[in-house]
């Protein structure tokens, strides 16, 4: 399943599932299912669908296993009911299926408030940075603010603190179950799905740390969080591909194009610390909550550096095959 959040024709935020080139409103579809297949009274169906299939993606994820079960029910129902060219409505009159072009896709979890950004997570990245790599099984982590999160087609605002703005493309992991002290073996049970994560950084904020000899690298790390946190600096989307769409998250190709030209290419098979171990590493003393995003680190290769320079006017496309293309515009 590919799930998204969108703004419908009346400006309300809803959750939807992609079916071909259409998007089906999950809350409205569930209401229809309850009345027509579950013989639920019309009056109750509207309320029950709002509770069991909330219009907030975060609220839906927080229902954990129960939400997942309802999601599968409504998906197979709507998948079988929808016909090409026919518009469906819920019993209370809400439109169910939209053409993808009719709606404004948002970042899949607009309510997101916890983001963990992983750094130095492939050999090409370590080489480019010129730093000694973290030990095996460890890597660095920073947090960005929720205001960094943007959706597909949104604008990235050029900052004032620097001119060397660089993009990275990363596999984003969405947590689906609360947990702490999670072992590598169990880690993927805590994953709900995956997104494309486009991580931007103001490199000048790092490299303009004027310090004496012998201090190379260290003071730059003082400013990593700041350099990565300007407003609009992390587009995420366009859909959440549920786990079944990426059966092996360690063999996923990623690409970043600027104005159509490929600048970054990599594969998650090159990760220094794989997704399972990241979840173990981070959750040892910290609780994960459904809806958390782990952006698993910029990928790249010897041929294609993990960093790409962007400037105002650029169109940046970050793509992961089984998830989608995340397109954004850099503006002055």
């Amino acid at each position: 399943m590919k799930l998204g959040s969108f703004k419908n024709h009346s400006g309300n935020i809803r959750v939807g599932v992609k079916i071909g080139e259409q998007l089906a409103d999950l809350t409205a579809a569930f209401e229809k299912y309850l009345v027509e297949e579950g013989s639920v009274d019309r009056q109750f169906a509207e309320e029950a669908s709002n509770t069991r299939m909330p219009t907030s993606m975060l609220a839906l994820l927080r229902r954990e296993e129960e939400g997942w079960a309802d999601l599968n029910t409504v998906y197979s129902y709507i998948h079988n009911t929808m016909k090409k060219g026919e518009v469906l409505f819920s019993p209370s009159g809400d439109k169910i299926n939209y053409g993808l072009k009719e709606v404004k896709l948002l970042t899949p979890i607009p309510q997101m408030y916890r983001i963990f950004n992983i750094g130095l997570n492939c050999e090409a990245f370590v080489k480019m940075s010129g730093v000694a790599p973290p030990e095996a099984g460890y890597t660095c982590m920073f947090k960005k603010t929720p205001r960094c999160i943007m959706g597909p087609e949104d604008e990235i605002k050029y900052p004032v603190t620097g001119e060397d703005i660089e993009s990275e493309v990363e596999l984003g992991v969405i947590i689906g179950k609360k947990g702490k002290g999670i072992s590598q073996a169990d880690a993927l049970d805590y994953v709900f799905g995956y997104v494309v994560s486009h991580d931007l950084v103001v490199m000048d904020v790092l490299s303009k740390a004027h310090l004496g000899p012998g201090s190379e690298g260290l003071p730059a790390f003082y400013y990593v969080t700041l350099a990565k946190s300007p407003d609009t600096f992390q587009p995420v989307g366009p859909f959440i591909a549920t786990k079944d769409e990426l059966p092996d998250c360690q063999n996923v190709g990623v690409e970043l194009r600027i104005n159509g030209e490929p600048k970054i290419r990599g594969n998650t098979s090159e990760m220094r610390v794989p997704v399972r171990r990241l979840i173990e590493f981070l959750s040892a003393d910290m609780t994960f909550y459904p809806g958390d995003l782990i952006s698993s680190g910029g990928q790249g290769s010897a041929e294609y550096s993990p960093h790409a320079f962007v400037a105002p006017g650029d169109v940046v496309e970050a793509e992961i095959k089984n998830i989608g293309v995340l397109r954004n515009y850099v503006i002055a």
Partner: peptide
């Protein structure tokens, strides 16, 4: 070369 402990502050 770089103090890797800075990696783990957060």
């Amino acid at each position: 070369v770089c103090f890797p402990q800075a990696f783990y502050f957060t």
